[in-house]
């Protein structure tokens, strides 16, 4: 299947490996993700005020781009983009007056008709491709690699936009199992990482990172996989700050679920960009016999 793809800002910067591994592994299971033309930042957070239409322009304009391209569906990867765009879309679908005001404001654009649907790649993999089909394409063995899925907030909350049950999600667990790795059952998988407080309260984030990463580690996880570049920054890069505050803390690598998928489908090294992660997963992957010594040099 062919589908327009909305990247969002961070997937063109620190989260580049999320994008490259997603496009490559989606292709391997017959999803062709085509980057949307002239997309703009979605605003990253959905405005929670009833009188703040201005902040819905950014996400709605992206839906106009999808409409212009002649599609009625768009896929995204970043959990925050997914949440913001899905909520804005729901809002205008249920409120024709607000939609009209937004359309009038963007009078140079064609009117958004409210017929585009936004989906997360995980949903496409579950609903359109099927985890069983994916598992048949697995080439690389994970040799009992233990993986803790981390959902954070934006994939499952609030209820009307969640891609799975908000207290007991299974979608990432099922994907990890299909890819041949072992799932670690972790009660902290839906806890908030501290989100944008990382800008002015590093210590608040360090407290969250310590709790969430330690929980996964204590349950035997070798790595954590997730779907949000802000969570990746807080649980991954901020491990450095966490150690500075809590000397007893020691971390584990934090990857995107698409990097695990790319590895499983046999093509990790060119597309994973492990070099962009603060905690380098390559020594662990070599130790587990998942990638070979020397292979990691090309893995950039």
């Amino acid at each position: 299947m062919k589908i327009p793809y909305y990247p969002g800002c961070t997937l063109k910067a620190q989260g580049l490996g999320f994008e490259t591994s997603a496009i490559a592994s989606a292709k391997a299971v017959d999803i062709e993700m085509m980057e949307l033309q002239r997309w703009n930042c979605c605003g990253t957070v959905f405005s929670l005020a009833s009188d703040d239409l201005m902040h819905y322009i950014a996400p709605i304009r992206n839906f106009i781009r999808v409409q212009e391209a002649g599609y009625d569906k768009v896929v995204t990867l970043c959990s925050m983009c997914y949440n913001t765009m899905k909520r804005a879309n729901l809002l205008v679908k249920n409120d024709s007056e607000k939609l009209k005001t937004l359309n009038d404001f963007m009078y140079r654009e064609e009117d958004y008709k409210g017929n585009v649907e936004i989906v997360h790649l995980l949903e496409l993999l579950r609903d359109e491709i099927g985890f069983e089909t994916i598992s048949k394409k697995v080439i690389r063995k994970f040799n009992e690699l233990k993986v803790a899925p981390y959902y954070g907030c934006m994939l499952t909350r609030p209820k009307e936009v969640g891609i799975d049950d908000w207290e007991e999600p299974q979608i990432m667990e099922n994907l990890i199992t299909a890819l041949g790795a072992e799932v670690v059952d972790d009660p902290m998988r839906g806890e908030c990482c501290g989100a944008y407080h990382t800008v002015n309260s590093k210590d608040l984030v360090a407290e969250r990172t310590r709790m969430i990463v330690t929980s996964a580690k204590n349950r035997g996880a070798d790595i954590i996989v997730l779907s949000c570049p802000l969570c990746e920054f807080n649980l991954g890069t901020r491990q450095k700050d966490t150690i500075e505050i809590y000397s007893d803390f020691s971390g584990i690598p934090v990857l995107y679920f698409t990097q695990l998928m790319a590895l499983a489908l046999g093509m990790g090294k060119e597309v994973c960009r492990f070099d962009l992660h603060y905690v380098d997963p390559r020594p662990l992957l070599i130790e587990k016999g998942i990638i070979e010594e020397g292979e990691e040099k090309n893995a950039r």
């Binding site: 930042c41 925050m80 800008v199 002015n200 802000l230």
Partner: peptide, 25 residues
């Protein structure tokens, strides 16, 4: 958030998603 008080070395590592969401909130 006092934008001018964010240290330069932090600005170099913080991803756009962190800055945009923080400033919006």
């Amino acid at each position: 958030t006092q934008i001018e008080k964010i240290p330069r070395d932090e600005l170099e590592v913080l991803p756009p998603i962190a800055l945009v969401s923080n400033f919006r909130k």
